[in-house]
């Protein structure tokens, strides 16, 4: 057998083993504690056909789209600005750093105080999760390239505004893409917590309700849907990064 074929055989065997162990353990436990894979499959079908999953994800996707749009504009803009212009970075970094070190969950009361519990509040919470990854990745990227590329531009007498456009922006592109991917993955944490601690809606709200109702099979199915989305985001955006910036090794 060739190496890739053997690898696939190992992967399939591992999957079979995991499912078998799950099935065996679950059969000996009450379904409310651990449902069998077969039950979870049935529950997933019910959630899909009943429209519950589509409704929850629909609410969530809109909020994520708005939050990430804001996070990219703010994160990329501030990242470029602070990475490029050191005095401003020194002025603002302690505040942004402090906000970053605060567990974002501690902002929930503040967000509730200022924005209530509905869509706007949820968007702000998701934004709080997504923003920092974008911002820090872009800022550190711009800062890191400063010495070498900027020296090149200076040696060839390229004026500042043109350097910004032809050197800094393109050089920042891989960091922007990486930052957006990491930001989106973090935003998913915000999504879940928004459903738990703000208005109980969206996929986070669905998970909360299913857990509270001890509908364990559906709960596991909903969790699997989050897993699929997270994985798709990560893998898909990594591919996109590789295509758009072939010279850059992605993190």
């Amino acid at each position: 057998m060739t190496a890739p074929a053997r690898d696939w055989a190992v992967r399939i065997a591992a999957l079979a083993l995991l499912l078998l162990v799950w099935q065996q353990v679950a059969q000996r436990l009450p379904a409310a504690i651990l449902p069998t894979p077969v039950r979870v499959g049935a529950a997933a079908r019910d959630l899909l056909t009943g429209g519950e999953l589509a409704l929850a994800w629909g609410q969530t996707v809109t909020q994520v789209a708005v939050a990430m749009a804001l996070a990219s504009v703010a994160g990329v803009g501030l990242g470029l600005l602070l990475g490029w212009y050191r005095p401003l970075d020194q002025l603002l970094s302690p505040l942004l750093g402090a906000l970053f070190l605060t567990p974002r969950i501690a902002l929930v009361p503040l967000i509730a105080l200022w924005f209530g519990l509905q869509d706007l509040a949820k968007i702000v919470l998701i934004l709080a999760f997504g923003f920092f990854e974008v911002f820090f990745t872009v800022r550190d990227g711009v800062r890191g390239m400063e010495r070498s590329y900027l020296e090149l531009a200076r040696a060839y007498g390229v004026p500042t505004w043109r350097t910004l456009r032809t050197v800094v922006l393109p050089a920042a592109r891989p960091y922007v893409l990486t930052g957006l991917r990491l930001g989106l993955l973090h935003a998913l944490v915000g999504v879940v917590l928004a459903g738990f601690f703000l208005e109980t809606s969206g996929i986070g709200g669905l998970i909360y309700n299913l857990g509270a109702a001890l509908r364990t099979a559906e709960l596991v199915a909903a969790l699997l849907s989050v897993m699929v989305v997270g994985l798709a985001v990560n893998v898909g955006l990594r591919r996109l990064e590789a295509r758009l910036t072939p010279w850059q090794v992605t993190r």
């Binding site: 995991l18 409310a32 504690i33 944490v189 857990g211 509270a212 969790l223 989050v226 897993m227 997270g230």
Partner: peptide
């Protein structure tokens, strides 16, 4: 080869979503 895909999956997802299941367990 056998398990890294699952670990990558776990790394990509908000595991905090599992808390309701943790309560059940």
């Amino acid at each position: 080869v056998a398990f890294e895909p699952y670990l990558v999956a776990l790394y990509s997802v908000p595991l905090i979503a599992m808390v309701p299941l943790m309560v059940i367990w």
